[in-house]
């Protein structure tokens, strides 16, 4: 009987260790602890160009992550990109004239939506719309413009 008792203990230990491993993976490794979707509200923002923004890209205000992108679609009437932002419900005091911009984290990092609060006393509600937006900076465009400009300057220098 003693023998089977040790066996039971070891099996129990094994199962406990396995479950602890799973728990570790879900809480420490994945994003389960950082963001839960059900206590959030959704607002939309229209951009001229949403660049490389993806679903699940972070939404931050003052550098702190407060939500994530839940949907990106193209509006065939206005030719704009309509981005749905799911914001954590504890940040429900964003002013109505908040500005949304798309930035890139680092030079090669992923793109994210940055919200800059305005001064209005009315707050954005679920289903609200952000009016003032700034599109993503397309790196190719910027480089193209830069090259074009420097070529132009060179040509002018030769003329002189």
């Amino acid at each position: 009987m003693q023998h089977t008792n040790t066996q039971d203990t070891l099996v129990g230990l094994f199962v406990a260790a396995g479950i602890a491993g799973l728990f570790f993976l879900s809480m420490q490794v994945s994003n389960l602890s950082s963001f839960t979707e059900h206590d959030s509200y959704t607002i939309t923002a229209r951009f001229e160009n949403s660049g490389g923004l993806k679903v699940k890209s972070p939404v931050s205000a003052a550098g702190v992550k407060i939500g994530q992108v839940t949907g990106i679609r193209f509006d065939p009437k206005t030719y704009q990109s309509v981005v749905s932002l799911s914001i954590d419900v504890q940040y429900n005091n964003l002013p109505e004239d908040t500005t949304a911009s798309i930035f890139t984290a680092g030079l090669l990092g992923e793109q994210y939506v940055s919200l800059e609060p305005g001064g209005s006393d009315d707050f954005l509600k679920n289903g609200g719309n952000i009016e003032i937006t700034q599109s993503a900076i397309i790196l190719e465009k910027a480089i193209g413009q830069f090259l074009f400009k420097s070529a132009e300057e060179k040509a002018e220098g030769k003329k002189k």
Partner: peptide, 8 residues
């Protein structure tokens, strides 16, 4: 369980 342990 073993795979989770391995990854962890």
């Amino acid at each position: 369980l073993l795979a989770a342990l391995f990854s962890a």
